[in-house]
Design a protein around this nucleic acid. Structure first.
Length: 269
DNA sequence: CCTGAAACCTGTCTGC
DNA sequence: TGCAGACAGGTTTCAG
């Protein structure tokens, strides 16, 4: 489900329900969702802790505790974090339940079991591997341009690489490349400074629009977002390009379904 | 250095 | 109706 806008939406929705609450109980329903520490240590360390902040970094939900430990949750493909009412009984695919001091529950539900949880006092082990946040003022068009120049990778897999830039996934990468007029197979070092500036703007525009629409809801996963109504290319195979009318084509790049306008997006020489 | 394939999972949809 | 196969918003690891 989640790319930056979806995770940001979830973070914003959780924040008022979690901030200042104490974790009264911990039920780990599927051990392998836990990356670190051991299940026993996890329950022991988390029980009784008060939640200080709820935020997002890249596609991680980042919960800071008052004992200065950090709870990270990555939703991967099908994960979701939901506030459930007092008296809640675990549902199918719930992997973790936290009982909160106001009687509500925080439920981590994840159909495909790809999502992961970390509880650590060393947040840099996770944060240190991540590339810049797209909305960070220090992430300028020139920073992107220099990054593109120093490698020879295809644009699409490069933009999906979370150490290159944080938060983009399959949907928003396709949308940004179309908005910038760049082909996903273009080699990064061949992108001009002008096109890099266009890409920088496009990345921010699609993510900002995604956030304003509370993310995208597709199929049976995730609800509440409406960005799916604004897709220009993603899942629009055969429909006319909004810019030139040429039918949108589907291709596979780096094992990922990829959507382009063959007229607006050409491979740079 | 870079690409592609496979793995981790469950559920839905399509076509025969 | 049944069933095989493709596909799904992510990330890691390994082979070439």
């Amino acid at each position: 489900m989640p790319e930056l806008p979806e995770v940001e939406t979830i973070s914003r929705n959780l924040r008022p329900h979690l901030t200042g609450r104490r974790v009264e109980s911990v039920q780990l329903l599927w051990d392998r969702a836990l990356e670190t520490p051991s299940p026993a240590h996890f329950v022991e360390q988390l029980t009784g802790q008060v939640i200080r902040t709820v935020s997002r970094r890249a596609k991680y939900i980042w919960i800071q505790l008052e004992n200065s430990w950090h709870l990270f949750v990555h939703l991967r493909m099908s994960g979701d974090l939901l506030i459930q009412p007092p008296g809640y009984q675990p549902k199918r695919h719930d992997r973790l339940l936290l009982g909160l001091s106001d009687g509500h529950w925080l439920a981590f539900n994840d159909t495909r079991k790809f999502g992961r949880i970390w509880l650590t006092d060393a947040p840099q082990t996770i944060l240190g591997k991540l590339g810049p946040e797209p909305f960070d003022p220090a992430y300028t068009a020139d920073v992107l341009y220099q990054g593109l120049r120093e490698t020879n990778r295809q644009l699409k897999p490069l933009l999906l690489d979370q150490s290159f830039v944080a938060g983009l996934g399959n949907i928003y990468t396709d949308e940004a490349l179309h908005l910038a007029g760049l082909h996903p197979l273009t080699i990064s070092s061949a992108v001009s400074a002008e096109r890099a500036t266009a890409l920088h703007q496009a990345i921010r525009t699609v993510l900002e629009t995604g956030i304003k629409n509370n993310g995208a809801s597709i199929d049976w996963v995730y609800r509440g977002g409406s960005f799916q109504n604004h897709f220009r290319v993603y899942a629009q195979t055969g429909k006319p390009c909004q810019t030139c009318g040429t039918p949108i084509q589907r291709m596979v790049v780096g094992q990922r379904s990829t959507h382009i306008c063959p007229h607006c997006q050409k491979v740079e020489p």
